[in-house]
Design a protein around this nucleic acid. Structure first.
Length: 917
RNA sequence: GCCGUCUUAGCUCAGUGGUAGAGCACUCGCUUCACACGCGAUAGGUCGGAAGUUCGAAUCUUCUAGACGGCACCA
């Protein structure tokens, strides 16, 4: 078989995905075992406006590793894909598009047409990310792909809204909200970010008192809001202002008179101790206003310009222009006291960075107290969801819940789920899933639907169950209670909810995770998911989060092209769960090299597996006859050793994945494959295999085949490509649940690691061999003996150890590049020899004419020094009465044994050194 | 202001009470018949600092410095 020398990822990446998908390997239905346990994950739906970034690649890798792992174990596995309609993002794209192409505004084309265009936009551009997921090798069930505005998901949204409204958990109210003047919509608290401005100003304005020449000075960072002031407040305990409470202020630039009031809210220490109160434009002022029954004067339009209420001179003026103008006027009037520099943090729109305006507005809210209790209760009683890593996320999640405020859910957009509320002429509201029902409630009166849509996160909050077909209609409940349902007739909702794990980033724990927890429990009575894996952030090469403005992003697709999908995947999986990591190409390069190593190891095995019709039996009993007590039929040490290492590794990999410790699994596999399998096992077996030994060939292919299975969840393309090339692979190697499916490593049984095949003795013996070979290599290297020169190796050891070396003579000869091995109880070598010592043996290499005595002395002294350092530490510990008394006896014995060993080795080395003098 | 995370070899990172690890880079050697994306052999760290608990601390506690994150406030 002709196999290229270097692995080209493209070939494998282009060959398998389509077949996997077409043969239905991704769908849970491929599992033929009616009793199979289920395993389900729903994807955090990426925005339809998005394209794949490193964060997706990381999360998708983890979800795919879990899904492929469980699938190979025989679980009925579903990883459900889908996308989010991303209200504001799509709306913005479509607005830009019609502006650019037709020079029109949304208002020009009207709501209906606009929404139609948005759908077209979604159909045309919304698949970018789903196509990219195919490239990633994501084993999602495309037949169950969902979109948050699909019919059934929209029905679910309406029914949830109506139910919550009927139960009083959703209300409409006049509140100070976060307003983005650019997007012209309200934002929830979580969509507002903060930006620190060092160039901020604190402006001190003098307000004249009525019938007096006194003034009161107030400080503000937003002078333009003074046009909406309806009071000035002071602390009731503030002696400076006590006499002014109840007096009236003539508000400059307006013809209004406003009162001076006393309120505990005011901090006498800050600024001047007098605060201007603008109830319609500040959340704290709003509360003060409610307490004192103040007028709420709205002075700003939805685009950030001033209203007529701000006064004739200001009408239509932008808020920042108005700010300048107010200051100018105060200056002219001699009422500007001073302007101080003041570092300020401003609220900005998460998406467009526009400064958010707190503004009084009537919106829809979800009352969060009972919702919060649902989530807190789950955490308290069941510890659900279980976060990985638990610290700090569980604490942060819980603390956030405890301080939860109501959730603003209406948005002034057209793209999204229009709120199912209708109004009659008198402003009475009728909430119902359909217009017909609303009209019936209104007694047939003319009604008009609320113009707002719901926050995108409202529909995302239902994602864990709306994706499985839940719509909130009565038929949903009907299917749920029959306990006798088989796998075939169970609905997805019965089968797959609760999902097993949610994999996502910490930025949306509040926005999304918490809301899914609450809403899923509330509406289905089930948990949304048992576990939550929080991934870290992949940072740019500069150590900062990747962003367009910093231009430090790394495109996963470029990495796929450069190093291959598999290398990128396994590199991402090698990052400790939850830890942030600075991107570095050399990390991926390591795994690109690893892929090549796997490729070439397989190439070697195949080149030497004889003719194609050689009967190779894979998946056979790897114990190789350990069941037989008779030593003469036992498999060679190297075979027992590699079988032991394979099974130990498999067991540990399963354990690590079960704890979401992907990096541990990767490290185990990397070192098993590269160090144990390639550097030692292949090298040890090379001669036999090249000589055409069928049993050896069969054995090594069997080990390789199992290693490929263990690697498959991380490196799906490479492993499938190679697995298909192995002789003797078939669906007979599949997990029992997939025995009738077409052959693929995807459905092969995942090695669980048989503890009975872990052979401590073989590992210990092999270590003795490895150590001896390493010491000889060290001698060769340090004494600068060319690899082409072969020499005799003397090994002195007790009889039992000699047997080990004797049994592996051929291997030692080859790997130590020796031509003869002399075994004995003691060394019998000329003075001109290089020596070393291991736990199992003394080693000598006669080097007549080649030895540099000075170098050899140095070498020996070096070894003695190292041992001495350790000896000193051990002696110190062992002479400490406290240690000997209090430490566990095993520990003391262990150190004592090590100390004795060191003493023996030191003695031998010292003797050798003296013999040189 | 409150809460939290991180600080380990030149670089990027593992390591939650018992002799400090990996990959890359560095040094030396190798056209060893799978792989130079390779093989072999070295070198490199008082685990940010201080104090404490303990027979024993990178690991637990407190304090402290620096980097970062979340939340709150911001007249």
């Amino acid at each position: 078989m002709e196999i290229p020398k270097a692995y080209d990822p493209k070939v494998a990446e282009e060959s398998h995905y389509q077949r996997w998908e077409e043969l239905g390997f991704f769908a849970p239905e491929i599992n033929q075992d009616p009793d199979a346990p289920k395993y389900s994950i729903v994807i955090p739906p990426p925005n339809v406006t998005g394209s794949l970034h490193m964060g997706h690649a990381l999360q998708h890798t983890i979800m795919d590793v879990l899904t492929r792992w469980k699938r190979m174990q025989g679980y009925r596995t579903l990883w459900l894909p889908g996308t989010d309609h991303a209200g504001i993002s799509v709306q913005r794209k479509v607005v830009e598009q019609i502006k650019k192409v037709e020079h029109k505004s949304p208002l020009d084309i009207g709501r209906e047409e606009f929404v139609r265009r948005a759908w077209t936009w979604k159909e045309e551009y919304g698949n970018t990310i789903t196509e990219q997921m195919r490239r990633e090798g994501a084993s999602v069930d495309w037949s169950r792909q969902r979109f948050t505005m699909d019919g059934s998901l929209s029905t679910a949204v309406k029914n949830v809204f109506c139910t919550l409204y009927d139960e009083g958990w959703i209300y409409r109210g006049l509140r100070i909200v976060n307003w983005c003047p650019k997007d012209k919509t309200v934002l929830s608290d979580l969509e507002v970010k903060e930006e620190t401005r060092k160039d901020g100003k604190l402006t001190y304005l003098k307000y004249p008192l009525k019938n007096s020449d006194r003034t009161v000075t107030v400080a503000t960072t937003r002078p333009e809001t003074m046009l909406g002031d309806t009071a000035v407040a002071v602390n009731p305990k503030d002696e400076r202002y006590k006499d002014l409470v109840g007096k009236t202020i003539l508000l400059p630039l307006t013809d209004r008179e406003i009162p001076i009031i006393a309120d505990e809210y005011v901090d006498a220490e800050f600024g001047t101790g007098a605060v201007k109160i603008t109830p319609a434009h500040d959340p704290n002022d709003f509360l003060v206003g409610e307490r004192h029954n103040l007028e709420q004067l709205l002075i700003m339009n939805d685009d950030g310009t001033m209203k007529a209420a701000a006064g004739k001179d200001f009408e239509g003026v932008d808020r920042f222009e108005a700010r300048k103008k107010v200051i100018e006027r105060f200056e002219e009037l001699g009422l500007l006291e001073k302007i101080e520099d003041y570092e300020i943090t401003l609220p900005v729109c998460e998406r467009c960075k526009t400064i958010v305006e707190p503004i009084l507005s009537e919106q829809w809210f979800v009352k969060m107290d009972e919702m919060r209790d649902i989530a807190l209760e789950l955490m308290k009683t069941e510890g659900v969801p279980h976060f990985s890593p638990q610290v700090p996320h569980e604490k942060v999640y819980t603390a956030w819940l405890e301080n939860l405020k109501d959730w603003t859910i209406s948005r002034q957009l057209w793209w999204g789920h229009q709120i199912p509320a209708w109004y009659d002429e008198d402003g009475n509201v009728y909430v119902a899933p359909t217009e017909a029902e609303a009209k019936a409630k209104a007694g047939g009166k003319e009604i008009k639907q609320d113009q707002d849509v719901l926050d995108t996160w409202f529909s995302s909050g239902l994602w864990a169950f709306s994706t499985f077909g839940w719509t909130g209609q009565t038929s949903d409940q009907l299917t749920a209670h029959s306990l006798e349902l088989t796998a075939k007739t169970k609905t997805d909702l019965d089968m797959f909810l609760p999902t097993d794990v949610l994999v996502t980033g910490r930025d949306i724990i509040f926005l999304w995770v918490s809301r899914m927890v609450m809403l899923t429990k509330k509406f289905t009575g089930k948990k949304a998911f048992e576990d939550v894996v929080i991934t870290g952030t992949v940072l740019g090469k500069d150590g900062k989060p990747m962003s367009k403005s910093r231009n430090n992003g790394v495109d996963p697709l470029e990495m796929f092209d450069k190093f291959g999908v598999d290398a990128t995947r396994i590199y991402l999986a090698s990052i400790a769960t939850g830890a942030d990591i600075r991107w570095n190409d050399t990390g991926v390069e390591t795994y690109r090299n690893f892929a090549n190593k796997i490729w070439n190891a397989t190439r070697f095995c195949l080149m030497n597996s004889g003719s194609a019709d050689t009967p190779v039996r894979l998946g056979l009993d790897l114990a190789g006859g350990t069941g037989d007590a008779d030593k003469s039929v036992r498999a060679p040490l190297a075979d027992r050793w590699i079988v032991s290492r394979l099974n130990r590794t498999a067991g540990d990999v399963n354990k690590a994945l079960g704890k979401y410790e992907f990096h541990t699994a990767v490290s185990l596999l990397f070192h098993f494959f590269w160090d144990d399998f390639c550097d030692w096992y292949i090298e040890l077996k090379k001669d036999e295999i090249i000589a055409g030994d069928i049993a050896a060939s069969s054995q090594i292919l069997s080990i390789l085949e199992q290693a490929l299975r263990l690697l498959h969840p991380f490196m799906p393309y490479l492993t499938e490509e190679l697995w298909q090339k192995l002789p003797g692979v078939s669906n007979g190697l599949h997990n029992a649940a997939y025995s009738s499916a077409e052959q693929t490593i995807m459905l092969a049984d995942f090695p669980i690691g048989d503890p009975a095949l872990i052979d401590e003795a073989a590992e210990a013996e092999m270590n003795a061999v490895i150590e001896a070979i390493s010491k000889v290599r060290n001698i060769r290297s340090e004494m600068s003996i060319s690899p082409s020169i072969k020499f005799t190796v003397h090994l002195a050891a007790e009889a039992a150890k000699q047997d080990i070396f004797r049994a592996n003579e051929a291997q030692i000869l080859k790997l130590a590049r020796a031509d003869k091995i002399v075994l004995g109880e003691t060394l019998d070598v000329p003075k001109a020899s290089a020596k070393a010592v291991t736990a199992a043996a003394e080693i000598a290499v006669p080097l007549e004419g080649l030895i540099d005595f000075e170098k050899e002395r140095e070498r020996l002294q070096n070894q003695i020094d190292k041992l001495n350092t350790e000896h000193e530490r051990l002696s110190g510990q062992l002479s400490n009465a406290n240690f000997v008394e209090k430490a566990p006896p095993e520990k003391v014995a262990e150190l004592q044994a090590r100390k004795t060993e060191i003493e023996q080795q030191t003695a031998t080395l010292t003797q050798n050194l003296e013999a040189l003098n």
